[in-house]
């Protein structure tokens, strides 16, 4: 079975975000593998382990600096990796879901996967739209918010997590895009041997012109007007003082409940 796993490196703000000239400062962020993709990688590897002659290929749209993160995926058991980047993408404030899915749609024919795994969302934007957008573009079926997965023949039996604690049991015909929810499995740690092997594994790099002769199809569909910081809630009252003084103030409120609890 051929498995493609689309992963992303996310930026996490270290402290306050600074906006200057309507752009963000890279040094305000730390970079790492998207949490949802940790679970997507594990799901991909588990399927590959259960089906003989499987291959797991990861694809990432990211600059060279993301290679450390990609190597971690290789160390966990991804067989080879593809990284797509371009100076045109460098100029954009962010990659919108349609642009991402358009780029990814061009790599799919080169892999011909039976399943494409990706995280439900990325922690940087929580837009949660790339997987479905991609599936519709390439004519794959899809299941989102997958918290349980079983492959049997050309079908995937899944549990999808809906709101309010409701689970949906469903069946989707392959080839399909599956967006993976956190908690579906326990992502493995890379072994020392895996980390060593990862250095030897193939990490292919594509530019946009490698993917299509008409690079106009990689135009963003969302334009940035401005970044701004959220207006904070002024009605909050902060408790100051030593931990004991702060605790005493919480205790006062709880004791005000009357029963001191339920």
């Amino acid at each position: 079975m051929k498995i493609l796993v689309a992963i992303t490196e996310v930026a996490t703000p270290e402290d306050a975000i600074n906006i200057s000239d309507n752009s963000l400062n890279e040094t305000d962020f730390t970079y790492g593998l998207n949490e949802w993709d940790e679970y997507a990688i594990e799901a991909a590897i588990q399927v590959a382990e259960s089906v003989p002659d499987s291959e797991v290929v990861s694809v990432t749209i990211a600059p060279k600096s993301a290679e450390k993160t990609i190597r971690m995926a290789l160390a966990k058991g991804v067989d080879r990796s593809i990284r797509i980047w371009d100076s045109e993408l460098e100029k954009l404030p962010f990659l919108d879901p349609q642009l991402k899915s358009q780029i990814l749609s061009k790599i799919v024919p080169q892999i011909s996967p039976d399943i494409i795994f990706t995280g439900v969302q990325s922690s940087s934007d929580s837009w949660g739209s790339t997987g479905v957008s991609l599936a519709a573009k390439i004519g794959f079926n899809w299941a989102t918010l997958v918290t349980k997965l079983e492959i049997s023949g050309n079908k995937a039996n899944v549990i999808r997590e809906l709101e309010n604690g409701v689970d949906e049991f469903a069946e989707v015909t392959l080839p399909a895009v599956l967006t993976i929810q956190t908690g579906i499995n326990s992502p493995r740690y890379a072994s020392l041997r895996g980390i060593k092997q990862a250095q030897q594994k193939e990490l292919e790099v594509f530019s946009l012109s490698d993917l299509s002769t008409d690079t106009d199809e990689f135009k963003p569909r969302i334009d940035l007007i401005e970044f701004s910081l959220p207006i904070s809630n002024n009605s909050i009252q902060y408790f100051e003082g030593t931990p004991s003084e702060q605790a005493a103030q919480i205790a006062n409120i709880i004791k005000g409940l009357g029963s001191g609890g339920k």
């Binding site: 975000i17 962010f94 934007d125 969302i222 940035l224 007007i225 970044f227 701004s228």
Partner: peptide, 11 residues
């Protein structure tokens, strides 16, 4: 974006 730490106005 970024767990509600940034507002993004888009068109």
């Amino acid at each position: 974006m970024y767990s509600s730490k940034l507002c993004v106005k888009i068109s």
